[in-house]
Computed example of a mutant assay.
Amino acid sequence: MSGWALLAHLVRPQGRHGEILADILTDFPERFSDRRRLFLLPPGAEATPTAKNQAPPREIELEDFWLHQGRIVLKFAGVDSIDDAEKFRGFHVAIPESERAELTDGSVYISDLEGCTVIDLATEGAPAIGTVVEVDRSASLLVLKGTDGSEVLVPFAKAYLETIDIAAKRIEMRLPAGLLEINAPLTAEERKLQQAAAAEEGAPSPTAPKKWTKHRPWKKKPQK
């Protein structure tokens, strides 16, 4: 979202005193200790920041936080009950982009990668593979919308990376031969061959309707 850096996504109430469990969207969760002024963005605001009738971000004070099983629990001032916390389910916690933590050389913000066009320099003509629509942090994957509209998964690995130009929204990579074919969808001919092979082995076809076995109703034996 232009103008905002997302730090967390509020999932559900956690506890009886207004605490809220959240997914972490920042590489610096420890810096919540330095932040007291935060903003809550309504669901959808991060995707459509200029939508008409969109509720404005709500400034809120962070009272406390702690990490919990790979997530973070946040306690905001004035949110003191389960009902209070429930009102913010699905909201995003954000700060102005101007307040983001400074990065070391060679580092980039994940949010800045979204919208970048990925170029494969290893392929003749250096074609565009697609546009980054999401970054899978857990698997270090770039999720692209391919030039044909399909989903393309590309490892975001330093070994493949050549340059990142955030201003130009361009990522240049040199990918190993065959990497893109691994995640490519099956062609119509490949699906037919797969179904034929499954039929020969006696396995049900992926597109065939399931056949259900009719069972007799179970009857309880009378007690002697």
Rank of each mutant, 00 (worst) to 15 (best):
S2K: 14
G3Y: 06
W4F: 03
W4D: 02
A8T: 02
L10N: 00
G15K: 04
R16E: 08
H17A: 12
E19H: 12
F28Y: 11
E30N: 09
E30H: 12
S33V: 03
R35G: 00
L40Y: 00
L41Y: 02
G44T: 09
E46I: 08
A55Q: 11
A55G: 03
E59T: 03
L62C: 02
L67D: 02
H68I: 01
R71A: 03
I72Y: 00
K75P: 01
F76T: 01
V79P: 01
D80L: 01
I82A: 00
D84H: 00
V93M: 02
E97Q: 11
E99G: 11
R100A: 12
A101G: 09
A101W: 14
D105K: 15
D105V: 13
D112S: 15
G115E: 12
I119Q: 06
D120N: 15
A122W: 09
T123M: 00
E124A: 00
A126S: 15
G130L: 08
E134F: 12
L141W: 07
L142G: 08
L142M: 11
K145H: 03
K145M: 10
K145A: 09
D148K: 09
G149A: 05
V152S: 02
V154P: 04
F156L: 14
A157H: 08
Y160L: 09
L161T: 05
I166D: 15
I166R: 15
K169Y: 14
G178S: 11
G178I: 14
L179P: 05
E181W: 11
A184N: 14
P185C: 03
P185D: 02
T187D: 13
E189T: 10
A198I: 05
E200M: 09
P206L: 07
P206M: 05
P209D: 10
K210S: 09
K211E: 13
